[in-house]
Each structure stands twice: as C-alpha cells, then as structure tokens.
Design a protein around this nucleic acid. Structure first.
Lengths: 238, 238
DNA sequence: CGCTATGATTTGTCTAGTTGTATAGTAGTT
DNA sequence: AACTACTATACAACTAGACAAATCATAGCG
C-alpha cells in the first residue's frame, strides 16, 4: 500500500511543523525518543527522517543537547491535501435526490424494533441516492411504518423530499432521536453508486426520526462517501 | 482437479490456532521464516497465507517487528456530550489513555484560529491513545492554550484525564461548540497506533471545546478505528 | 561565588533480526 | 503458449537492544 517509506512521511510532517511555525528557528525539537513515541515507530526510523532534514539544512543535531531548527522552511511540498468537501448538516437534509426504489414489504426484526412495530408489519422502504452538484454523495435507505403513513409512496414519488412527503401525510414536524456513526469500507454496490472503488472509506449513519409525540416515523440508514463529505454537527442549544 | 493450494491449508491452520487460543490477542506469531521451516515450504507461501489472514483482519503485520494477532472486533458506543470515560465504563469496558507525547510549542495558523489566539502563541499539545480493555480504539491530539492553562501538562501527566486536568486548572466545565466528522482511510502511522492495516476505514473527528463563557479551551482531533467504534449521538436537548 | 563531581538526558553508532518487495526460475496444467 | 502454484535469491525498510559520547542540571565543597 504505502510505497513511500514511513521515514519520509515523518520527515514531511516535521518539515510542515517547521514551515507552519509550530517550531520556530532556534527551537529544540522533541527528542528522538519522544518523536518515536508520538509517531509509533522505532527511534532509528525517526533518526532517518531527521537525517533527511539535516541534509536539507533545516535542522542541526547536537549530540547530548538535542536537534535544533536552523532555518524556516520556505518551500515544502504541500501535497494534494486540498480536496473537494461537501458540508452537510447532521439532520441529513440534502438537496438533490434520486429515487432508486420504492417498495412496501414486511418489516424485519431490526426495523420493527426501531419503529416500535411488530415484525412482519408492513413498511415502506425508500432506497435513494443523494446528489450535490451532480455528484453522488450518499446512498440511503429510509423505512417508514406503512400502517401509519399509507399514502407516503405517492407523495415521495412526486418530489423525493422526505420532509414534504411526511408533511403531506400529516407529520408536520419530526426530530432525530438517535444517531449512530461509524466508518466502514465501501461494499461493492455502495461503491458503484457512489463512484468509489470498493474498500474506500465511507461514513455509516443510522438514525431514527420521531414526531413531536415521540412516535418513530422513520428509520434511516445513510452511507456517505468519506472522500466527499464532512459531517458538521451543530451543538447549539447551549 | 485443482487441489486446495498449500497456502490455504496453512492459512486455515493458523486461523484454527488463533481461534482455539494457541495464539492470544496481541501475541506475535512465529516469524515467516520459522513458519516456512515448520511447514516445509518457501517463505513466500507462508506470506500468502498471512496475507489472507490480514485481509480478514485477524492479524496485522508490522515490518521489522513481526505479525501480531488483532483484537476481536467489538463495538464501543461513545456519546457526544457524555464524557469518554463514563461512556466506556458504562459499556462494561475498562477505559484507559496512553500518553504518547506532551509538549509545548508555538501554535500554527489553524490552531491559533480555533483557539482564538495569535499564530506563534504557545500551546500545549497532548498526543495520546484511547484504549478500551487494553485495545486501542482511537488516536487523538488535543491542543490547549498555554497562556491560559500554564499548569496543564503536569495535571495531564498525572492521570491523563482531560476533564480532571482542566478542572484542576480552573476550568470547571466545558462543552463542545463544534464537531466535524468524516471517514478516511487509515494512514500508515495511524494504522500502526490502532493496530489496523493501512487503508482500513477510520472516523476523523475535529472539534473545539469551550468553557461556559464561550472561550475555547481545547482544539482536538481524534481518529477512531472504524471497525471498533460506533459514535452515538444523543440529540436530546434537555 | 566559583569550581568540580556526578548522574540523568540526549544524540551517535553498532549488531542482529524481521517483514516488504522485486526479479527470476521451475514444474505441472490447460 | 499461457497460466498457476511454488521456489530461490537479493535487497530495502523497519524494529530491537545495547553501548558510547556529548551535554546539561544540580548538588556538594572550597
């Protein structure tokens, strides 16, 4: 996987530390042992990185004293860190949706528990794709209790918006009562939908939305393309 | 007519060894050379078997050190508002932190902005490892304003707990004012710390904590092992 | 105050061992 | 001829531990 040796990575990180002012000219760097600990490598690997910086005259080691910054780096490779990011609020309201499928079937055990139903009760299942600027951002699956929302499929088919479809079915407002997040590797089908390669990191989100009375109205799973999405949580309500 | 390849046989034997406890979690397997000798095959054949186990996340090799048995995948719920320790112990796991390094240096531009400081102002930087039942579940870096919290390093070195160290320095309480989450592939150094193979999915979290007056006291980055952690958000507002 | 002795810390060097990767080759099968 | 499974060899990258050499802080002593 990593064709670049670790010591080069460390050397670059240290160069960046100097270039961005975290260590100024004349400062002493952490000891080799400390650097080894923070980077989780052997001391010799750190030494190799420091040797590279010394070769570039960025630092000068003094036996018994430490390694000192001799000059500020003026020119260092910045890498391709800048990426296309899409900021999305945690509520999951994203412009641009594409309906993949919309069916009604029996609820499995997990879905029934999440929606406070009995296993086998009918549910609407809405599979879709979230887009931004034409790029796929997430695949999602929303599960709704069919008994409570018989007319939902038609409403959803019309505009795709969950919020508006729910309002049309008598749920004026809803709030998220639980969210669980984790990072996973993209499965084949997810990768296809999100234009990723299989195994690319994706952000899994599982949540339940309920009406103001506390009755669950949606059980949703969303898989975000990790490379294109940053989830921002707003912790207002101080 | 195609017999099962030798490497599959070896992989199965090793899997059984691990499953039946002949090699415990964290143990180092015999070296590739030793395994090759005992099985009477070439080293590359053993490597192929080990590669299969690594793909299944049963083991994680460390160049120069050996091949180690990975931790069994378990999910650890972590709350957004609730403190780390409380949460882990609530799930029946014994929490722990390991200090990787604790230094004071100048703030770079990003850190300065996050903490409402000027670039170059001194900051304490706390690199560490979060553990649950001895297994690493996250690497983190916390940045604190040094001018405001001069005695923090000693307090942190004593017990490792950020909450207690901050309280000791006069910050009785703090709340999270912003969080950003995304999924990434583990970089080499992160993978080593978290006992993962490079490229495994990890959950990046960047957040700022502030005291009740709204002054930032911590700028923290955390990288969770996606396979071992589920972040649970409590969206109750009261 | 000034000096030295001492011990802890830190970089420099050495040896040995382990995994990662690249190249080339052989035997058997299709 | 091409492919698969495995062998053989060599080197690169990293770990591990030990010890030497230089530095620094400090305590003790004149």
């Amino acid at each position: 996987m990593s064709q670049t040796p670790i010591w080069k990575t460390i050397a670059l990180a240290l160069t960046a530390d100097i270039a961005e002012g975290r260590f100024a000219t004349g400062d002493r760097l952490p000891t080799e042992a400390q650097l080894a600990a923070t980077h989780g490598v052997n001391r010799h690997t750190v030494r190799r990185a420091l040797a590279e910086l010394a070769r570039q005259r960025l630092v000068h080691p003094r036996r018994g004293a430490g390694v000192f910054v001799s000059a500020a780096a003026t020119d260092y490779p910045i890498g391709k860190r800048v990426r296309y990011h899409q900021n999305i609020s945690a509520s999951g309201k994203i412009p641009g949706k594409q309906v993949l499928s919309l069916i009604t079937r029996a609820a499995d055990k997990t879905e029934a528990e999440a929606l406070a139903l009995a296993p086998g009760d009918p549910v609407h299942v809405y599979d879709g794709l979230s887009l931004a600027d034409g790029q796929p951002i997430a695949v999602f699956q929303s599960v709704f209790p069919a008994a409570r929302l018989p007319d939902l499929p038609e409403a959803l088919a019309q505009n795709g918006s969950v919020t508006r479809a729910l309002r049309h079915c008598g749920v004026a407002d809803y709030t998220r009562i639980s969210t669980r997040l984790t990072a996973r590797a993209a499965e084949a089908i997810q990768a296809r939908h999100l234009h990723l390669i299989e195994g690319a990191p994706v952000l899994h989100s599982v949540g339940i939305n309920a009406d103001p009375q506390g009755h669950p109205v949606e059980y949703g799973k969303t898989v975000f393309a990790g490379e294109r999405v940053t989830l921002t949580l707003d912790d207002d309500h101080g």
